[in-house]
Amino acid sequence: MEKAFWQHRWQEGKIGFHEGVPNRHLSDHLDALGLAQGRHIFVPLCGKAVDIDWLLTKGLRVSGAELNFDAVEAVFDRLGVTPETTQSGALTRYSRDNLTIWAGDFFKLKAEDVGFIDAVYDRGALVALPPHMRAAYTSQMRVLCRDVPRLLVTYDYDQSQMDGPPFSVPEDRIHDLFDDQFVIERLASVPITGPLAERCSGEEQAWLLQPLGSRGRPLKQG
């Protein structure tokens, strides 16, 4: 699941993971993150998700990271605005008003690039990565975001039905990845629908990850 794989998927238009409407779990459970207007939410491996537009309508500052430059430009085109672009190391920063997207290798993004983040929305990042890349992803997210709540969307299906992505991330694996940092609550579990349902059967799940305090209790969010 290297960079060339995803670039090829975008070039071939094989982006069945792209939803033309806001994700149902985002619209149903954003309030669980406890964000006031003006707070900063980070969307890793965001693609050209319409979720970004929806989050902006809620008065939030939105930052994202995406490998494919065409996907990043498509977001700003859809919003009808021209972003300012600047180079920062190996990444290109696209920014306008309350939206910033970093184009390039997510693993080269630095905490000082994104600044303080209040929450994370991960619909397409963890499930996009094969098992051998998940530890690196969680480590990078810990560097970028530290102790902030997360809304995580995953799939649970028999991996023998298809190779992925999106990959199956069952509940026990979520606990393996995040128990040392978060209190984990499953918010929803519904049957897989849409184009993905033609390839596999299983559950689409939404999780709330609340950061642990020093004694293993959820931290209060301001």
Rank of each mutant, 00 (worst) to 15 (best):
residue 191 P to F: 04
residue 63 S to P: 06
residue 205 Q to G: 01
residue 136 A to M: 11
residue 37 Q to S: 07
residue 198 E to D: 14
residue 39 R to D: 02
residue 101 I to G: 03
residue 181 Q to I: 05
residue 216 G to S: 12
residue 96 R to G: 01
residue 168 S to V: 08
residue 184 I to Q: 10
residue 17 F to H: 10
residue 158 D to Q: 15
residue 37 Q to L: 06
residue 22 P to F: 03
residue 133 M to F: 13
residue 175 H to V: 14
residue 81 V to T: 14
residue 93 R to Q: 13
residue 52 I to H: 02
residue 91 L to T: 07
residue 195 P to S: 09
residue 199 R to S: 13
residue 76 F to D: 13
residue 16 G to V: 12
residue 131 P to S: 15
residue 212 L to I: 15
residue 25 H to C: 02
residue 197 A to F: 03
residue 222 G to L: 14
residue 24 R to F: 04
residue 33 L to P: 01
residue 72 V to F: 05
residue 219 L to S: 06
residue 210 Q to E: 10
residue 102 W to N: 06
residue 169 V to I: 15
residue 103 A to S: 14
residue 80 G to W: 07
residue 101 I to R: 05
residue 122 D to V: 02
residue 87 Q to T: 15
residue 111 A to R: 12
residue 172 D to L: 05
residue 205 Q to L: 10
residue 113 D to P: 09
residue 90 A to I: 06
residue 117 I to K: 00
residue 3 K to P: 09
residue 123 R to C: 04
residue 124 G to V: 03
residue 59 G to W: 08
residue 5 F to W: 10
residue 172 D to V: 08
residue 112 E to W: 06
residue 32 A to Y: 01
residue 140 Q to R: 15
residue 71 A to G: 15
residue 15 I to M: 14
residue 5 F to H: 14
residue 57 T to F: 07
residue 53 D to E: 14
residue 207 W to L: 05
residue 63 S to G: 02
residue 58 K to R: 15
residue 134 R to M: 08
residue 58 K to W: 02
residue 217 R to Y: 09
